[in-house]
Amino acid sequence: MKQIAVITAGLSEPSSSRMLADQLAADARRHLEAAGEQVQVEVFELRDFAVDIANNFVAGFPSPRLNAVIDTVLTADGVIAVSPIFSASYSGLFKSFFDVVDNKALVGKPVALGATGGSARHSLALEYALRPLFQYLRSAVAPTSVYAGPADWGNGDETVDGLADRTDRAGSEFAALILNQGPVQRPAAAEERSFEELLAQSTS
């Protein structure tokens, strides 16, 4: 069983970031299933955890519900991460979530990147903001990242390099990274440390 964690930072409902994340997950699932794998996908919309993420910065440790999201990300075979683009970069909520994840926990983790925005000009943020973030975290990032703007939705886009082609290519590359990696090892679990240890770390 291959497990995929999907992190999306869209703020509206419905969210174009969630729509793009769902398409990437569907394409990755299809390629993995074609390779004979069973696939489980879990989707987390960060707007539902915004207060928990903020409280993590104050308290120094995650709430149980946020810890469950982090744990799923850490133990997943791969992560799909999609953010809306604001001021030529990922959203503050998106960055804040990955700030509370151990910066060594995603080393070698297959990651597929996506972004959405109101203008095609924002597509550069994938290569100048999102990809450098995950390169810093030393993740194994799929070569193709996908940007979706207003023109990509609702137009039956089946042209060369259209949205469907891009998500299929990214899903294929992401699936290949998952299939080529070794067994996922669970990092040192937060629940194995006492509350006192976590509190001491936050005040050190």
Rank of each mutant, 00 (worst) to 15 (best):
N56E: 12
V107F: 10
Y90D: 02
R65M: 07
S89C: 11
G60Q: 10
D99G: 10
A115Y: 01
N56K: 06
A120Y: 02
V101D: 11
P84H: 06
D99A: 14
N103G: 10
V107K: 15
L113E: 10
S119V: 04
A54M: 10
V73F: 01
P64V: 06
P62Y: 04
L66N: 06
P110F: 03
Y90L: 11
G78Q: 02
G78A: 03
V100M: 11
Y90G: 07
V69D: 12
K95A: 15
G108P: 09
K95G: 12
Y90Q: 14
L106N: 10
I70L: 14
G78T: 02
F94S: 09
D102C: 10
A76L: 00
A76R: 00
P84K: 02
D99Q: 13
G60H: 05
G92V: 11
V111M: 14
V101C: 13
A115N: 03
L106S: 13
Y90N: 11
T72Q: 05
A76K: 01
K95P: 05
A59H: 07
V101G: 06
D102I: 11
A68M: 05
S89D: 11
S91V: 01
A120K: 03
A88T: 13
F86H: 13
G117K: 06
T72M: 03
A120L: 05
A105T: 11
L106W: 13
P62Q: 11
A112V: 15
S96C: 09
R65Q: 12
I80R: 03
V100D: 05
S63M: 13
P64L: 12
V82C: 07
V69A: 07
F57N: 08
V107D: 06
I80W: 00
K104P: 03
D102E: 13
G92T: 05
F61E: 14
G118N: 03
A88V: 03
S91Q: 08
L66Q: 05
V101M: 10
D102H: 12
G114V: 15
A112E: 14
A59L: 14
F94T: 13
A81T: 01
S89H: 09
F94R: 04
S96F: 04
I70V: 15
F57R: 10
A76W: 00
G92C: 09
V79R: 00
S91T: 15
G60E: 09
T75Q: 06
L113A: 02
G117R: 04
G118Y: 04
D71C: 06
K109G: 02
V58L: 11
V73G: 04
V69Y: 01
V73I: 15
Y90S: 10
I85E: 08
D77W: 03
N103Q: 15
G60F: 08
V107Q: 14
A81P: 01
G114R: 09
A76H: 00
P64W: 00
I80Q: 01
S96Y: 03
T116S: 02
A68S: 11
F57A: 15
F57D: 11
V107R: 15
Y90A: 08
A105Q: 05
F97K: 13
S63G: 02
G60M: 04
F86V: 09
S63I: 06
S96D: 09
V73P: 03
F61K: 12
T72R: 15
N56S: 11
P64C: 08
P64E: 10
